[in-house]
């Protein structure tokens, strides 16, 4: 049971609730190893995936999670909906509300879209990524993966490398790490840093090679060419040589450290193929954890709803 009905930003969960979500996800991870990967837990509940932006892993991960919990999942894709006829987000939300669903996962190119939905809908909202703002379930599955790989969260030094200013992953991961007592360090070229990097509350660095030996996790971000107004660096090759993870940089990391990436990867830009596919990379573990973590979020948001209202 969580105090908030929604998970729209990392502000909606406390440090204790994060640990509770990760512990619950561990039980769901066991289910995902079974031959019959299905639980009757959310039978009869309706979960809508409202995706206004393209997505492979997040949408599939939420969809698989809802199916494994026996909820009825409905997928909404902007390109094949009334959105192309000009329906606004609010009208779409009201239409969905009239069909009485229990949980909406929303991804939208504008920050704050989940909050807008929460105002007109009477169901739980999970933010599946809003613009360059937040992507909280990604941060939760990243924490889960770090805890699985390194055995703890407290005291970890996590270097988040690359396109910080366009990254909703960093937007959620930085506060999430701070809540659980880890240290986020944002590293990237000044052209890809937010205007006020200090407000994020992370350590700021511009030289990746200097920071590498102190890291427990090297978290590479995708360079979001589609969000950048113009090319933020002279060439992909220059970016790769200064901020890309490659075999030489992997060797500078402490031996226990792991490499993460939220996907999809620009192979050869922020990460080379040999590092992405190496034993030190836990990128596919992140994808695997995603299903269990999203099952835990759905279970904790939708379960016990009545007693929550009464208490």
């Amino acid at each position: 049971m969580l105090a908030s009905r929604h998970i729209m930003t990392m502000d909606d969960v406390t440090a204790e609730e994060i640990v509770h979500i990760l512990d619950t996800a561990e039980s769901f991870a066991e289910v995902n190893q079974r031959r019959i990967k299905k639980l009757p837990t959310l039978r009869g509940r309706t979960i809508v995936n409202l995706f206004f932006e393209p997505s492979t892993r997040t949408r599939m991960s939420f969809e698989i999670a809802s199916k494994r919990l026996s909820a009825d999942g409905v997928n909404f894709t902007a390109s094949s909906s009334a959105t192309v006829k000009g329906e606004t987000l609010l009208d779409t939300a009201k239409t969905l509300a009239a069909m009485s669903c229990d949980l909406v996962v929303v991804r939208h190119k504008y920050a704050g879209a989940p909050q807008m939905l929460a105002e007109v809908m009477d169901c739980s909202i999970v933010n599946g990524g809003d613009g360059v703002h937040q992507h909280p379930t990604q941060a939760l599955l990243d924490l889960y993966t770090m805890r699985q790989s390194l055995g703890k969260l407290e005291g970890l030094r996590v270097g988040i490398v690359g396109d910080i200013c366009h990254s909703r992953v960093a937007g959620s991961l930085v506060p999430a790490l701070r809540k659980v007592g880890a240290t986020p360090i944002i590293i990237g070229p000044p052209t890809l840093m937010p205007a006020r990097p200090d407000v994020l509350g992370a350590e700021v660095a511009y030289d990746l090679d200097e920071v590498l030996p102190s890291l427990d996790v090297a978290y590479l971000l995708r360079v979001q060419f589609e969000r950048a107004a113009r090319m933020p660096f002279p060439s992909n090759r220059e970016y790769a040589s200064l901020y890309g993870m490659n075999a030489a940089r992997l060797a500078k990391l402490p031996p226990h450290a792991v490499v993460m990436h939220p996907g999809p990867m620009n192979r050869g830009v922020e990460i080379t193929a040999d590092v992405a596919d190496s034993a030190r990379s836990v990128i596919l573990d992140q994808v695997e954890s995603g299903v269990a973590v999203r099952m835990a979020v759905m279970y904790l948001l939708l379960g016990g709803a009545d007693s929550g209202a009464a208490a």
Partner: peptide, 22 residues
């Protein structure tokens, strides 16, 4: 066995703690 996920009252009551099934 932890039966939290199989209870018939998930909608009204959540187990405070889910243990691992093994």
């Amino acid at each position: 066995l932890d039966i939290s996920f199989y209870r018939d009252d998930v909608a009204t009551h959540l187990s405070p703690e889910v243990h691992a099934t093994d």
